[in-house]
Each structure stands twice: as structure tokens, then as C-alpha cells.
Amino acid sequence: MAKALMVAAAVPALLVATSGAASADGWVTWKNVKSGYYLTGTSDGTVKGAWAMPGVNEDDYQWYDQSNSDGSYNESNGHLMCLVGYYRQVYTESCNSRRDQTNWWQRWYEISTSSGWKLKNRQTGWILDDEGHGGIYANSTDYNNSNQRWK
């Protein structure tokens, strides 16, 4: 009986830990709600939306979600590059992806909405946006549309 209760208690914890971003430090993917493209960042600093295929260029579209003490997250990819929001420009640059070891340009708030996650830059307050054809940028206005929501 006690063993069954322990297993039953562990299942909800497992579901929370794997339910997506903002739940725990770990690897995530960000897929745009409207375009279906994944947020990718290459070793040369380019950030774009692109189709992702399992086993192909996974370092480009998988992000390590590292929480900071201010409630923000670092998004570092398999190339050890952090996602940066410099007003409208979004790119990657070298970073120390450990907790509290990045600057505010490299930090993002992950805000849950009814239509997906909103990624808001810590320094600028601008929202990560997808142009719909692979172009990624940040927008000063949250239009609450599917171009600005990620899952």
C-alpha cells in the first residue's frame, strides 16, 4: 500500500517536471504557435525560425532553460550561445549560462498565457516575435497574437 502511494505521488511530480518551459532547469524547444517553426540559434549568432527534425542539427533548436534568482531564464543552445534581445534585434552570443551569471540582455521572462508562452526580454521588456516566414525579432508591443506565442 505504501509503495503504491509513493508511485502515485511521484507521477504528478514527473508530469510537472516535463510539462514545458518555466517548470524547471533543463532542455526545451520553443515552437512558434502560428508558423510552427522552432526557434533556432546557430553557432554564428544567427537566430531564425526553422523546421526541426529529430536527430538533425539539434544543437540549433534545443535550448537549455536556466532559471535566475530574479525570475528570468537564460536560453542557451547546444553551441553554448545565449539568446539575446537587443531591442528589435535577436541573436545569440557567448555566455556563461549558469544561474545569475548573464547580463540582463540575455535574460527572458517566460510568461504563461492562454495561447502559449510569451518570452519577454529582461532588459528591454520587448516580446519575442516570429514574422511568420522564419524571421525572428523582438517587438516593443505585446499584440497578444500567435506570432508572439511559443509552445
Rank of each mutant, 00 (worst) to 15 (best):
residue 61 Y to H: 11
residue 62 Q to S: 11
residue 64 Y to T: 02
residue 34 K to D: 13
residue 108 W to C: 00
residue 36 G to M: 02
residue 129 D to F: 01
residue 127 I to R: 09
residue 92 T to F: 06
residue 134 G to N: 06
residue 124 T to E: 01
residue 28 V to T: 14
residue 114 S to F: 05
residue 18 T to P: 02
residue 37 Y to V: 01
residue 82 C to M: 02
residue 43 S to I: 04
residue 19 S to R: 07
residue 124 T to W: 08
residue 41 G to M: 03
residue 25 D to Y: 01
residue 121 N to S: 10
residue 33 V to F: 05
residue 91 Y to N: 15
residue 140 S to D: 13
residue 77 N to P: 03
residue 107 R to M: 11
residue 113 T to F: 00
residue 36 G to K: 01
residue 135 G to Q: 08
residue 133 H to N: 15
residue 34 K to L: 14
residue 130 D to F: 11
residue 55 G to F: 07
residue 111 I to W: 05
residue 110 E to D: 02
residue 118 K to D: 04
residue 67 S to D: 14
residue 64 Y to V: 01
residue 70 D to H: 00
residue 134 G to C: 08
residue 32 N to I: 04
residue 94 S to P: 07
residue 112 S to D: 09
residue 37 Y to F: 13
residue 56 V to C: 06
residue 60 D to W: 12
residue 80 L to H: 11
residue 106 Q to R: 04
residue 73 Y to W: 15
residue 45 G to S: 06
residue 85 G to Y: 09
residue 23 S to F: 10
residue 124 T to K: 02
residue 57 N to P: 03
residue 29 T to P: 01
residue 29 T to I: 05
residue 42 T to R: 14
residue 16 V to Q: 08
residue 50 A to N: 09
residue 79 H to D: 07
residue 51 W to C: 09
residue 76 S to M: 12
residue 85 G to S: 13
residue 126 W to F: 05
residue 58 E to Q: 12
residue 17 A to Q: 09
residue 113 T to Q: 09
residue 70 D to E: 01
residue 79 H to G: 08
residue 133 H to F: 15
residue 32 N to F: 00
residue 130 D to G: 08
residue 16 V to Y: 11
residue 109 Y to V: 04
residue 122 R to Q: 14
residue 36 G to T: 00
residue 27 W to A: 08
residue 81 M to L: 14
residue 18 T to N: 13
residue 139 N to E: 12
residue 32 N to G: 07
residue 101 Q to I: 00
residue 15 L to E: 12
residue 28 V to F: 11
residue 99 R to D: 07
residue 40 T to M: 11
residue 73 Y to Q: 14
residue 73 Y to H: 13
residue 62 Q to Y: 09
residue 103 N to E: 08
residue 135 G to A: 14
residue 44 D to T: 10
residue 119 L to G: 05
residue 90 V to P: 05
residue 101 Q to P: 05
residue 66 Q to R: 13
residue 17 A to W: 10
residue 41 G to T: 04
residue 113 T to E: 04
residue 30 W to A: 10
residue 137 Y to M: 07
residue 47 V to F: 05
residue 22 A to M: 09
residue 33 V to Q: 06
residue 57 N to A: 13
residue 66 Q to E: 14
residue 116 G to R: 04
residue 28 V to Y: 09
residue 98 R to M: 12
residue 96 N to V: 10
residue 86 Y to D: 10
residue 39 L to D: 00
residue 131 E to A: 15
residue 102 T to D: 01
residue 94 S to T: 07
residue 20 G to E: 03
residue 19 S to E: 08
residue 97 S to T: 05
residue 39 L to E: 02
